[in-house]
């Protein structure tokens, strides 16, 4: 049994005059201790997927239309609110994109960490605080600073605090939603390195959401490429990096500057992601795809296994035409 198994997940945002299909029929699997990278452009539905796992989608306007999210065999979409609260922060926790706003500005950081420990670990205030101090030390912050407020920390240190909160209860799954986007590059590296280390130390599985393939290469075992609410390609890191099959994945690699290859210029993917309120018929990527044919415009594409563990949602790739 996988640690997390998402089956046919569909999430919509319903406003007065339109329905935005943020996630469509998504399947994902994460094994215990493994790291899955979820890659895609802004607006592809990565964060929505992550929030769905924790059931933190704002409702309304958001709504989980269908599917299952099986965590250790238990459907998270069906458990009671109470059970869900017991899972949040304890078995599954999340690191948010922007550390600047993710911490409550008027509560001392030590308390913000201790709070989650006290909640889930059934211990006294003092014990919780002791563990909070230990967590601070673990993420590289001197424990004395637990009495400080978030505004007294730099961005990178705030993200360390967020990570400390997320790992405080040794969760089985850690969802990291672009944990380094808001940070300087040097700090990014420090934070990533620390996360990798801690992941091993706590033996935590991780869902790493990012649009940065470099980070994926550094941290992940598997990669899922997401586009317009769907997975377009999934496979082990080696397969995806060495043999990307979907034109979008290829496009992503083309958009990354590389030092060791002699490329005249970057090849950004032309066009924009389709309006999620009015998705095209057939392949969602067709409008930007240089290989698109009439069939792509007609038929919905199937997510097909082209080699063991390597799935692609592109008819032409499956047929080997690309």
């Amino acid at each position: 049994m996988s640690l997390l198994e998402i089956k046919h997940l569909s999430v919509q945002f319903e406003t007065r005059d339109s329905v935005i299909k943020a996630v469509n029929d998504l399947d994902l699997t994460i094994e215990a201790g493994q790291t899955l990278g979820l890659v895609g452009e802004t607006g592809a539905g990565k964060t929505t997927t992550a929030l769905s796992i924790l059931r933190l989608i704002q409702e309304p306007p958001g709504r989980i239309k269908g599917g299952e999210i099986l965590f250790e065999g238990k459907d998270l979409l069906k458990v009671s609110n109470e059970e869900m609260r017991a899972i949040r922060g304890n078995e599954i926790s999340m690191i948010f994109q922007d550390p600047m706003t993710a911490l409550n500005p008027i509560i001392r950081v030590g308390e913000q960490i201790a709070e989650v420990i006290r909640l889930h670990e059934n211990c006294s205030k003092g014990e919780a605080m002791e563990k909070a101090l230990y967590m601070l030390e673990t993420v590289g912050i001197r424990p004395e600073r637990s009495m400080d407020y978030p505004h007294q920390f730099s961005g990178g240190m705030k993200q360390r605090v967020v990570i400390a909160i997320a790992l405080a209860c040794s969760p089985k799954l850690l969802i990291a939603d672009e944990p380094t986007t808001a940070l300087d590059v040097t700090i990014q590296a420090q934070v990533l390195e620390m996360m990798n280390k801690l992941k091993q130390q706590f033996n935590t599985a991780m869902l790493m959401i990012t649009h940065d393939l470099g980070i994926v290469a550094e941290t992940c075992d598997h990669v899922a490429i997401m586009y317009a609410g769907e997975l377009v390609e999934y496979g082990t890191i080696e397969r995806i990096f060495h043999n990307p099959r979907h034109p979008y994945t290829n496009g992503l690699f083309g958009a990354i500057p590389s030092l060791d290859k002699d490329v005249d210029r970057l090849r950004p993917i032309p066009g924009l992601m389709p309006d999620p309120a009015a998705l095209p018929k057939g392949c969602k990527f067709q409008e930007r795809c240089e290989y698109a044919c009439d069939k792509c415009r007609e038929n919905a594409q199937m997510f097909t296994e082209i080699e063991p563990g390597h799935f692609v949602r592109c008819e032409r790739a499956v047929r080997g035409e690309i």
């Binding site: 017991a86 949040r88 922060g89 999340m94 922007d98 706003t101 911490l103 409550n104 709070e115």
Partner: peptide, 26 residues
Amino acid sequence: RQDYIRTARSKGLKESVILRKHALKN
């Protein structure tokens, strides 16, 4: 709607605690 409220939710806190402790003072 602030991020830190979402953080508080992701910790598994009860809504009432979130309101009282995290939202009200702000």
